[in-house]
């Protein structure tokens, strides 16, 4: 079964084998409001953990999306270009941003699991 991890910056990553799918959390999409544009990385781009990998924009805000772990981008969600609202409608599903081939699985240990993330968000008030 796929495991899912979260960052303090509200990205999630779902791990299947050595590939991870990355998006922003339901909490994050709620904070942003209606998403109007997503800039996804090019396939083949190498990103290191914590580096800017994508940009998500609502009408009134623009936020960077950081790579939860290091790796090489293997896919980007082309559907977001025509329908950025997918991020609001399905943040954890169809609204994914990009897929990474992980270069250092050990980095996953530094991320939160779902329960820890829920507690973290609850603490944000």
């Amino acid at each position: 079964m796929a495991e899912i991890r979260f960052t303090k910056e509200h990205e999630w990553i779902r791990i299947e084998g050595d590939t991870g799918t990355v998006g922003i959390s339901d909490y994050a999409q709620g904070q942003l409001g209606d998403v109007v544009f997503v800039e996804v990385p090019e396939v083949g781009k190498k990103v290191s953990k914590g580096a800017q990998a994508a940009v998500v924009e609502s009408v009134k805000a623009a936020s960077e999306v950081y790579a939860p772990v290091s790796g090489e981008v293997t896919a980007a969600n082309a559907a977001l270009a025509g329908n950025p609202g997918l991020v609001n409608a399905s943040a954890m599903g169809d609204g994914w941003f990009f897929k990474l081939k992980l270069s250092n699985k050990a980095e996953l240990g530094e991320l939160m699991d779902e329960a820890a993330y829920k507690a973290y968000v609850a603490g944000l008030g």
Partner: peptide, 12 residues
């Protein structure tokens, strides 16, 4: 498309 602009993006 005002997210391109200074009052939102500031130094970016």
């Amino acid at each position: 498309l005002s997210t391109r602009e200074q009052h939102i993006r500031r130094e970016k």
